[in-house]
């Protein structure tokens, strides 16, 4: 009896999580422009259409550009923050960690209003730079947490060993700390890239027509008219997410190995 309750509820709940995605994806390959079953065949036409339509490809390129900029900036900010915080005392650590994590809990609409106003007044304006800055502030906490985790897992004696062997602080950082926490930095970079690539709200407030991103195009498309290209873009974004998830898993496995 209790096993039955268990299996029914687990199956139902897990299906609710994944079925909506799995059921919708095939429609991207359906020749019909109605997004429903039964499928009338199998075609890549919609993919070809999306990939040749500048209305989709330009935002795609913009998204990649923004996300790459964000990855670099967020890894620098978040990484420096984590390295610095680890060297401070406990009390300072708590305060600074709260600061560096805070963008995760502030609703993105609020951040968007604040930044749109601030950028407008200081002359940063809308566009590529403002998007990179805004996304970096939201992505840096993820890098920070990721690097913090790998720094916490690092044996502090390794750094001391480096010192006792005559290595300066900087030499130690590049030969001991960085190689051993590299998976943390890499995972942070993955987080940062995907966060920026998927982000809509800040982009809606900050992008100008020239720097419109893929999520903005998708959002606009959804409000406008539901067509197969929208599902195609959704499929492309999902594939990217799954690829990044796999990359992250690989990084975490590599991270665990040297400490076995």
């Amino acid at each position: 009896m209790s096993r039955l309750i268990y299996w029914v509820s687990v199956t139902f709940c897990a299906s609710f999580l994944i079925l909506p995605l799995v059921v919708v994806w095939p429609l991207a390959f359906n020749p019909s422009s109605f997004l429903t079953y039964p499928m009338e065949g199998f075609t890549f036409d919609w993919f070809a259409k999306v990939l040749s339509d500048p209305g989709w490809t330009r935002p795609m390129l913009n998204s990649v550009r923004v996300a790459l900029g964000v990855t670099v900036l967020a890894v620098v900010i978040g990484g420096l923050a984590a390295l610095g915080v680890m060297m401070t005392r406990r009390g300072t650590q708590i305060v600074l960690s709260a600061l560096f994590v805070s963008p995760l809990v502030v609703p993105s609409v609020v951040v968007a209003v604040a930044l749109a106003y601030a950028f407008g007044r200081t002359g940063v304006g809308g566009g590529y730079l403002s998007l990179v800055l805004a996304h970096s502030i939201v992505a840096a906490p993820l890098v920070f947490l990721s690097v913090m985790t790998s720094l916490r897992g690092l044996d502090p004696n390794l750094d001391l060993a480096g010192a006792s062997l005559g290595a300066s602080r900087i030499y130690r950082f590049f030969t001991v700390t960085l190689p051993l926490t590299a998976p943390g930095f890499a995972a942070g970079a993955v987080f940062a890239f995907i966060t920026s690539f998927d982000e809509v709200v800040l982009a809606l407030f900050l992008a100008d027509p020239g720097s419109s991103t893929l999520p903005i195009a998708l959002f606009a498309g959804l409000r406008d008219r539901l067509e197969p290209p929208i599902v195609v873009v959704a499929v492309l974004l999902s594939v990217l997410s799954v690829l990044f998830l796999m990359l992250l898993n690989y990084l975490q496995k590599r991270h665990a190995a040297p400490r076995s």
């Binding site: 044996d155 004696n157 390794l158 001391l160 060993a161 480096g162 010192a163 006792s164 062997l165 005559g166 290595a167 300066s168 602080r169 001991v176 190689p179 051993l180 040297p258 400490r259």
Partner: peptide
């Protein structure tokens, strides 16, 4: 003097060998 300027060798309790 900081540790790196002392030229003292140290064998750590848990050895602290660099795993990488």
């Amino acid at each position: 003097l900081p540790p790196e300027k002392r030229n003292f060798g140290l064998v750590f309790q848990g050895y602290a060998l660099f795993p990488h």
